[in-house]
């Protein structure tokens, strides 16, 4: 986790470095050619040659900059995509037959909140799930309460409730169909999907 963050910040630093380099290089070229422009056009050939070189340099710089920008854009996309993936794949877990948010669940929900406030244009479905222990109808009710706990928590942190729809699947959609304590723990969850 921390390693990932380190790589990410290194990447950002490198991108920024390149940009500063590119910006600081640009004007230097212009400056060096400026005085020559005032010189008579006797050696027009040379001037033209210099102009062409300058043009070429400018193009090179522009291409370089575009490439850097593109790289930056791709890097940003990757970060965004990763954040979205994390938002969707990381579930919030619950204790047996409970719908209150544990400390761990609250920490995870703060990450969700961070993502949500950067993506206010998105509609999110909060799915409440239960383990296979207990009865179908009660578990549908319990899943609904789990989704409600999560929704309320996010609204309290300032997320617009209109973005957040809840649905309960009860025990109908287990991630692990096993009948073991570890399978049950995995199935007692709230899962996020993007509408």
């Amino acid at each position: 986790m921390q390693e990932k963050l380190f790589i990410k910040s290194l990447l950002c630093a490198m991108v920024c470095g390149f940009m500063i380099f590119a910006v600081s290089c640009g004007p230097k070229v212009v400056k060096s050619t400026a005085p020559e422009e005032v010189v008579e056009n006797v050696e027009s050939q040379d001037i033209y040659q210099d102009d062409a070189a300058e043009e070429e340099e400018m193009n090179r710089q522009r291409a370089l900059e575009e490439q850097l920008l593109e790289e930056q854009r791709i890097a940003e996309e990757a970060v965004k995509k990763e954040a979205l993936e994390k938002f969707i794949t990381e579930n919030v877990y619950f204790d047996y037959n409970e719908f209150f948010l544990t400390e761990d669940a609250q920490e995870r929900l703060k990450d969700k909140w961070m993502w949500l406030k950067d993506n206010m244009d998105i509609s999110v479905i909060i799915e409440g799930h239960c383990d296979s222990r207990g009865t179908t109808e009660y578990n549908l009710g319990l899943g609904e309460k789990r989704a409600e706990s999560v929704r309320t928590f996010l609204i309290d942190l300032g997320i617009d409730g209109a973005m957040l729809t809840k649905i309960s699947y009860g025990e109908e959609k287990p991630v692990d169909p096993g009948n073991t304590p570890s399978a049950w723990a995995k199935n007692r969850r709230v899962h996020f999907t993007i509408e």
Binding site: E137, Y138, G141, E144, K145
Partner: peptide, 20 residues
């Protein structure tokens, strides 16, 4: 809380249900 699973007495006057 959770209120589910109603079931009526045969005369319909009472209802059993599950609540938390």
């Amino acid at each position: 809380g959770i209120d589910v699973s109603p079931s009526f007495s045969p005369d319909g006057k009472k209802m059993a249900f599950v609540s938390r």
